Computed example of a mutant assay.
Amino acid sequence: MESPTETPTEIPTTLGEQLLLLSLDDESGAAKESAKVALAISAAALVECALADRIEVTDGRVTVVDATPIGEPALDAALALIVGKERPSSAKDWINRLKRDAMAEANAGLIAKGLVREEKKKVLGLIPVRRYPEADGSVEVAVRRRLDAAVLEGATPDERTGVLVALLHGAKLHRLAFPDADARRVAAAMETLAQGQWAATAVRQVVKAAEDALTAIIAVTVATTVVAGS
């Protein structure tokens, strides 16, 4: 099958912004699975830096090969932190470090691109909250179309779609992308795609490191939650 491609009119977005779009309720603007999504967005920033030939993974550590800014605020902020680190750290360390600002930076990007709008409200008249309802649904529709083609229809994904599938799979966010599909079928298809050869070797190494780190972090988080609640 032919690979799904982006339509000419689609607004360019980062993988982190695409992940956030999948998590936001279109009408209320509330985020689902926010803890996992923040981790996935952090992992996406690492992979985007690899896609731009700025970093690679060597002996399990993230190393800089080019410190030139990419031109996307959230990605440049992540790259600057990595460049400024005296000693290389693992993908897991970076995902944990970058998650603090991941959601805010992705939201800022979506607002700047006119895809969501910010609404400030107070819960119970006291607690201030921010919500990000949809302003332009064209990008989310295009992203979901590519995911459907790759995961449900068997189309060969392009590089960025393959990365997105791997990140969703690693963060256990299958239901965000495919809320109505058979969960087992989706998980199996995403597992197969995540192991595919849709990216250059250097990028695949970063994707694999990020995916493994996501799985490990989330497993620990779930275990800690279960123990705390027992």
Rank of each mutant, 00 (worst) to 15 (best):
W94S: 07
W94G: 05
I95D: 00
N96Y: 00
R97A: 10
L98G: 02
L98S: 03
L98Y: 01
K99Q: 14
R100Y: 11
D101L: 08
A102H: 03
M103P: 01
A104V: 08
A106N: 04
N107C: 07
N107D: 03
G109W: 00
G109D: 00
L110G: 01
L110E: 00
L110W: 01
A112W: 01
A112S: 11
K113I: 01
K113W: 00
K113A: 03
G114H: 02
L115R: 01
L115H: 01
L115Q: 01
R117P: 00
R117Y: 09
R117N: 06
R117H: 12
E118A: 10
E118W: 02
V123F: 10
L124I: 05
L124N: 07
G125K: 04
G125L: 04
L126H: 07
L126V: 15
L126F: 14
P128N: 06
V129I: 14
R130Q: 14
R130V: 12
R131D: 02
Y132I: 00
Y132P: 06
P133I: 06
E134N: 05
A135G: 07
A135R: 13
D136G: 09
G137Y: 06
G137R: 11
S138L: 01
S138M: 02
S138R: 13
V139M: 00
V143Q: 08
R146Y: 05
R146D: 08
L147R: 07
L147K: 04
A149Q: 09
V151F: 05
V151K: 09
V151P: 01
E153A: 09
G154A: 04
D158T: 03
E159R: 14
R160C: 01
T161A: 08
T161S: 12
G162M: 02
G162F: 12
V163F: 05
V165Y: 12
V165N: 11
L167D: 08
L168W: 12
H169S: 13
G170E: 10
G170T: 05
A171R: 02
L173S: 05
L173W: 04
H174K: 07
H174N: 11
R175V: 12
R175W: 11
F178I: 06
P179H: 08
P179F: 12
A181F: 09
A181G: 05
A181P: 04
D182F: 02
A183H: 10
A183Q: 13
R184S: 15
R184F: 12
R184H: 13
A187R: 15
A187P: 11
A187M: 15
A188T: 14
A188R: 14
A188N: 15
M190L: 13
M190I: 11
M190H: 12
E191C: 13
E191Y: 15
T192W: 15
T192F: 15
T192N: 15
L193S: 13
L193H: 14
Q197I: 15
A200Y: 14
A200K: 15
